[in-house]
Amino acid sequence: MSYEENNPSDIDQKWVFQILKNIIPDLETSEISFLYHGTYNVFKVKDEFIFRFPDKHFRNQKGQQMIVNEIKTLKMLKKHIKIKIPDPIFFSTRKDELYMGYKKIEGISLSRCVRMMSSSQKLEIAGSIGKILSQLHSRSLIHKIFPKTNFSFNAFKQDWRHKFEKIKAIAYPILSENQKDWVHKLYSCYLNNEDNFNFEPSIAHCDFDTSNIIVNPSNFRIEGIIDFEDTKIYDPSIDLLFLDEGEEFMKMIFKKYKIHKYDDLKERILFFYNQMGLEYLIFGIENDLEEMIKAGISLLIKRME
């Protein structure tokens, strides 16, 4: 299970019930079940709705903007992509009452069933992922959704340089020499290769993994995609980090993915994939989250193998 699936809620469920009772008057306490806790505390309500309440570190202006941006993005994307995505029907942007609710997309996360699937079923899923990302990353969609946004390659590169400096400042003290050498090589190779900053930007989900892909458990077909809070104009490679599923899975994605060739993105995919543990580690250190720090180091060690 992922860190998010093991992470307990950091919000009082009695308070959640009171908020939801104002929206759904006939709600019973037994009809609320906690699902997982990442950026949001996520609850299933009446087996019909999904409600998301920000983690305590986002119950502020940043959390407000996060909800506003996601709702705006979802409303625009809904007009242009064929797969089901959340359609927010309940939300509040008050600092003391931040949440978003939508009708549940029926199914389960791909992460919960991918190990039970046959090789042919996995390849069918991979092909579907390629088709979905072809829609999301299409050249025409970026102009429809974010027509006035200019992507700055300089700002993008500076952001990754800043992340590397932050890692050296606050993560290096708890890493072994071997781990520091590996991280230094990872970031240096990425930052010093100008080809990594000469790509065609796309609308990217930016958290497109098996936990956010909803499938029908009876036939393993994709029903929808969730969790669009990080969606923005970005390097499309960030949405193609399915290396854990094997080379054949990746090849099938790119057989159906019509925007870029695998070889053109492979180096950047590998960088984004390998640095994932460091994202957990930095957030955990900055917010004194011991379990997230452990999860980050564990993932770092796994990537180094």
Score class of each variant (00 low, 15 high):
E291D: 15
I301T: 12
F228A: 03
D47K: 13
S128F: 03
M304I: 12
A295R: 05
L300F: 08
L240T: 14
I233G: 00
M76H: 13
E106K: 09
I132D: 02
F197A: 01
L20Y: 00
L278S: 05
F91T: 07
G107A: 06
F49C: 04
I85C: 00
I259G: 01
H137C: 10
N69L: 06
S109P: 08
L186R: 03
S120T: 10
F249C: 11
K157M: 12
Q179R: 08
G127P: 01
K56M: 13
T39R: 01
L123A: 05
K84F: 01
S218F: 10
P217Q: 06
L35K: 12
N178R: 14
K168C: 13
K163M: 12
I238M: 10
V215W: 01
S211K: 14
Q275R: 15
A171L: 06
Y273S: 12
L265Q: 10
F254S: 09
N154E: 15
F34W: 02
F271N: 07
E247H: 10
R268V: 03
K258M: 10
D159I: 00
R115Q: 13
E267P: 06
K266W: 01
L300C: 05
D244V: 10
Y234H: 15
L98A: 03
E200F: 02
S118W: 06
K131W: 03
I297L: 11
S118C: 09
M292P: 07
S211I: 03
H80G: 03
P54V: 03
M252E: 15
F146L: 13
G224A: 05
F228Q: 04
H205R: 03
K255N: 13
Q65L: 08
N7Q: 09
E194P: 07
S119Q: 13
K261Y: 08
F34L: 12
T149Y: 12
V215S: 11
K46C: 11
L77I: 11
I89G: 14
A295T: 04
Q121K: 14
N219D: 15
Y190Q: 11
K144L: 15
K157C: 09
I301A: 14
K166G: 01
I233S: 01
K144D: 12
L133T: 14
S30L: 09
K266N: 02
W160A: 04
Q13N: 09
R115Y: 15
I203P: 09
S218H: 13
S140Q: 11
N198F: 00
R139T: 12
A295C: 04
I170K: 06
G63M: 06
N69R: 05
Q275H: 11
E248T: 11
E247Y: 06
I282E: 06
P25S: 07
V45S: 08
I167Y: 08
I282T: 14
G107F: 08
I85K: 02
F43H: 07
E70R: 14
G224S: 03
Y257E: 04
V114A: 02
K266F: 05
V16I: 15
W160S: 14
L289G: 00
C206G: 00
V16R: 03
I259Q: 14
V215L: 10
T93A: 11
L299R: 14
F17G: 07
K261P: 02
L110I: 08
W15T: 10
F90I: 13
L110H: 01
